[in-house]
Write a protein that binds this DNA or RNA. Structure first.
Lengths: 334, 334
DNA sequence: CGCAGTCTTGACAGCGCTGACTGTTTGATT
DNA sequence: AATCAAACAGTCAGCGCTGTCAAGACTGCG
């Protein structure tokens, strides 16, 4: 930095101001400094910056998610935002199934260790009240991805899971399906819960009379197999199943294959996420696309936005990706 | 740290020595300091440590991998090792398909920015000579995962891909398969190349006469569909296909389904990696298990091992995971 | 024209540690 | 008992920045 200051003929502090985009810097000075920075290919030292200043230039991504596909997409979005803002990314995984004291201890260790400027929470951490309270007690900024409740409590990014569930319901209904099944996610995963209730409520509005069969798939492939098997044994057997994430939908597909049922001829299946799995099964899975990578990006941007125009909420778009796993029910051809 | 020193009644430097496990510290002093550290829940400040010292306590994970499953497993292994050694993990992705000048520019930015103590390279970066040369020029430590050549050049972790390929060949041969096909990976992915040659050579030794059909699957699901389709059109049609990674094997499975061929009744299929996909297809994929998470862990451990007993090579075990995608050929029942 | 207020720049201490060095004790050896 | 090396403990500068404060250069206004 000294070299830059010398070359530009200004003080160290002025270089610092330019680097940090502080106000009250004349255009002439800024230009000089920026030129010097470019010719010397100067990169500020992160360690010194965080030691001297109040920021650490690190954002932490906290996750506790069973799905690697989801995780990696979020991660890449967050990473992209961090790079743009010259921040670094630290990743930690939390096992929030344990008693809260343990979770808090782990959180405490992470916070003390990494001194992140802020954290990004992914589901199901997003709705863990105790985690939120912990962070707030320490007045640590955080942004949440896909929260279910208290949207105003922090910056957060989400899609309208309930509306998406309803969309699936309407589509299935329009195809003629009347006997429906749902594969739910982990009980603590509130976004999954919203998908389910959105689906159920829409069905009710549509005038559905038969009760909807439900089984827990834990958002995992193996769980999906079990849930699918259970649903197929249900009387009357559903003619269409909505799995609230793709991983479990893939499991349901296996259950169907085992039961000798062809998708979509004998049974229709709709997933959620449009993750990589949706196109690694045959037939390709019709599913709800949610912009996961974008959500990561948006969450990090919100977190890092120094503008601080109050904590903001972002609703991102979703849509139904029609592929090959939906058809009219066999007993009710279109 | 000052508080710790005061409480223990020693100098700052002594605390530093204990924290860094430096030699020449008496047991009594160490005990006192450790007690003080515990009661005060002292955590050294990473920024100050790296500013003052020569280490940054950060290891960088560089990847350029099409497979999220692979990536996330490596990452979690590396992460585990880092935690154990009180290191932090930084992740960067590199697009090594671009001209080398660009790759080098990106690398340079990463190196300058993060000042990592060392890097872990995953395939195909592992065998990118120019990347290795770059790192060496800067005398930056690195460890490689699954390198194909110059094993002695750095610390590295691998499995014997060639032997694994041979294992698949022998298994398929033993089942009675004589018309074989291979789905290859990206040409630059040398580990994939070894799997292929190991497979081919073993077949030759076994006395195979028919040429083996080959098609490139780019280690991706879509690529696997294309490669599978090509292979199935081949005359004579293979009775067994070896896909050199699971993602492309899943693609081949789709190609089979489209062609109306049942796995394993009509055609056998073997994957490689035992990734998450292997159990998200139906039937479950028989595949080679490679300890990916372990490889990440081992690579990081090697990198961080201050013991410096010379650069070391680690060969990890692999084995065939028999699931449901292998059977004797239809025209040659067991 | 003078004065308060604002914008722009610089001087300097110090963030929390470690590396290099100095001093002091211990134990082994002659 | 004298000598010396090895083991142990401490002092202090300074890593590369940023926050604080203050000074100088303007501006507008009565």
């Amino acid at each position: 930095m000294e070299d830059v200051a010398r070359l530009a003929g200004v003080s160290l502090k002025s270089v610092s101001r330019v680097v940090n985009r502080e106000p009250h810097v004349s255009d002439a000075l800024r230009a000089k400094v920026e030129a010097a920075i470019t010719t010397l290919a100067f990169v500020p030292d992160a360690a010194a910056r965080s030691l001297a200043g109040s920021r650490t230039f690190i954002v932490g991504l906290l996750f506790d998610n069973p799905s690697p596909n989801y995780t990696i997409k979020i991660q890449s979005g967050v990473y992209r935002a961090c790079m743009e803002q010259q921040y670094h990314l630290r990743i930690d995984s939390i096992d929030s199934d344990r008693p809260h004291a343990q979770v808090e201890a782990q959180l405490d260790a992470i916070v003390r260790n990494s001194r992140c400027d802020g954290f990004i929470l992914t589901p199901p951490l997003t709705d863990n009240i105790q985690v939120l309270a912990f962070l707030e007690r320490r007045s640590i900024r955080y942004a949440r991805i896909a929260p279910n409740s208290e949207l105003g409590r922090s910056a957060c990014v989400a899609i309208d899971d309930s509306a998406a569930g309803a969309l699936v319901a309407r589509r299935l209904w329009a195809l003629g399906h009347r006997r429906l099944g749902v594969v739910t996610g982990p009980p603590l995963h509130r976004a999954g819960e919203r998908r389910r209730t959105g689906f159920l409520n829409a069905l009710k509005e549509l005038g559905a009379t038969l009760p909807v069969a439900e089984a827990n798939g834990s958002f995992a492939f193996e769980g999906g197999i079990a849930a699918g098997t259970a649903l197929l044994a249900h009387e009357p057997r559903p003619s269409a199943i909505f799995a609230t994430n793709d991983d479990s939908a893939a499991g349901v597909m296996v259950a169907c294959a085992r039961a000798g049922l062809r998708v979509p001829h004998d049974i229709s299946l709709c997933g959620f996420d449009d993750s990589w799995v949706a196109k690694s099964v045959w037939p390709y899975l019709t599913t709800i696309y949610q912009p996961i990578e974008e959500m990561g990006y948006a969450a990090a941007s919100l977190l890092l936005d120094r503008g601080e125009t109050g904590d903001r909420q972002l609703m991102l778009d979703f849509h139904l990706v029609e592929r090959d796993s939906l058809a009219p029910p066999p007993d009710h051809p279109a």
